[in-house]
Design a protein around this nucleic acid. Sequence first.
DNA 1: TTGTACGCGTTATCAC
DNA 2: GTGATAACGCGTACAA
Lengths: 338, 338
Amino acid sequence: MHNINIKELAKSLNLSTSTVSRAFRDNSDINKATKERILAKAKELNYQPNHYASNLREQRSRTIAVIVPELANNFFSQAIHGIERVAREKGYHILIFATEDEYEKEVSFIRHLHNGRADGIIMSVSGEANDHTYLDELAEKRLPLVFFDRVYEDIITPRVITNDYNSSFSAAKHLIKQGCTRIAYLVINKNLSIGKTRMQGYLDALEEFNIPYDDKLVIDCTNSYRKNNTILKNMLSKVKPDGVFTSVERLAFATYYACYDLNISIPNDLKVIGFSSLEIAPLLNPSLTTITQPATKIGIEAALLLFKLLEAPETVDLNCQIVLDSTLVKRNSTALKS
Amino acid sequence: MHNINIKELAKSLNLSTSTVSRAFRDNSDINKATKERILAKAKELNYQPNHYASNLREQRSRTIAVIVPELANNFFSQAIHGIERVAREKGYHILIFATEDEYEKEVSFIRHLHNGRADGIIMSVSGEANDHTYLDELAEKRLPLVFFDRVYEDIITPRVITNDYNSSFSAAKHLIKQGCTRIAYLVINKNLSIGKTRMQGYLDALEEFNIPYDDKLVIDCTNSYRKNNTILKNMLSKVKPDGVFTSVERLAFATYYACYDLNISIPNDLKVIGFSSLEIAPLLNPSLTTITQPATKIGIEAALLLFKLLEAPETVDLNCQIVLDSTLVKRNSTALKS
DNA sequence: TTGTACGCGTTATCAC
DNA sequence: GTGATAACGCGTACAA
């Protein structure tokens, strides 16, 4: 593909390349008439300044990298949507990376981004990471980074999160109020900060209502549908909980499937509540009580924060965190009678 | 952010930049020992060749642009997932653009991409486009383009689609076999090729079973949840269909909501079938009978096709189309008795 | 207001 | 096998 470049455009106008270049920047002194003449011709010839040359020259890419654990997930696709909107308004592009919850990929993406490909990173961390020091390289090189939702506690950088502790306290409390006393807590990775925080809310709610904690009710699940199905069926038949609180959307679905298989009636035999960004939660059988995070808003806030970091780093406290509220929507999966 | 460049790396090794550069390409003559020495040092200093300089020099970006109507949509996020996987294996990045079904954005994205930002485009077209000639500019400039799922019939370029005609014929047939005689067909944009093809399957199925066509049963919906709700409630109460066939996932959901509001029982009063990539269709109330497109596979195939176009354009027939099969999964929303 | 000349970081070509 | 150098397309300091 041969695209017209600034030289050819200049030649066709009998101008120098610098004059043409100036027509595309706002700050430069240039005769209004010539500028218009240039822009007109540019449009005619469909000239677009080469991004790579500009980036090289200006030492920035006007691109932000978005790293998420997975794409086929309501929360992340909504968040990306929010990020994309802000980025587009700012004239930035977004580059998408999916770690598929693999730590190695996360590290490799981050390292790779040292090549100037992006001006900043918005990331929700993978579930399996243990050693986060590789991120400190970022700090040294000062490539702006904003976390959202899933964060590493030990890395100091701005973050946008929801009040997971409060939300899960409310969720557990709601189950208790609906009469549950044996509430299972389903988590995918206990060590991930988000798993820990959400679990603490659950624990504290139990304590507040004097419900004894039983560690057999805390179930560590996986990312595999098949394994989860086995784990859950096993748990449901042996531990016999009367409520299930899932820290991740996927586990609520898994619970439904397991209950279907075992002929356990929700909410009569078992009440279910879960973190979820599913827009059609009301259409489930039974409709699912959810703690819904403002996913799009989270994306928007994360992007705004990153741009602040890019445009005026001195105004941003690296310790800052934006905390948004999730919403507890009560539906039939936790109703008293179906 | 200051990243180390090839010059500094060369200097720290007492080598020339050309030698260092050679260490990173496979084809060049270079002493094995020096190569290793260079790579070791590069790793130590965390050197990454600057993408923009390489791109400028090599006149390609190793990036593909993905343009979709929307991101918060199961079909598209799964497809993007597939594209991302292939791209990553090839060492490419993907740039995401969401048109939000606005024709202007689509045009602007495409024009923008003339600046060398991407080596190729994978696109599912927006719903509102009328004039596609702007795409011919692409043809002239030979920026490789692959369509998937939603295509423009009048633009000649490779495409990956599903057999929409057959699928919707089967879907309509299934409804008929289940006893429906007044089947509504819900579409978002009748003029879009995908809307037309799917509708033809519906029409032909009606004809085959001698069911008269009633144009009051073909409902043009919108992208707005609120408007659709009004349109559908109105339709359901006035036209009183006994079956609904939705050409788009979202309209199946809208139908469910409308039925809930009007106390219409699915499937007793009304049977529903729809195109949908929802993984939890079995969990809906009632579980939704779907025509499910192999979304991830479509993405993978589209990406493979684009890479073929990039790597060996002469081997690709621009008229080629890959047709994948969708699956009709019968569930309770079309059952005889609930 | 416009033009000239240089450099951004890389790689390919040509010497040695 | 390695080094010097030009060029990719653009933006800006400086000169005119």
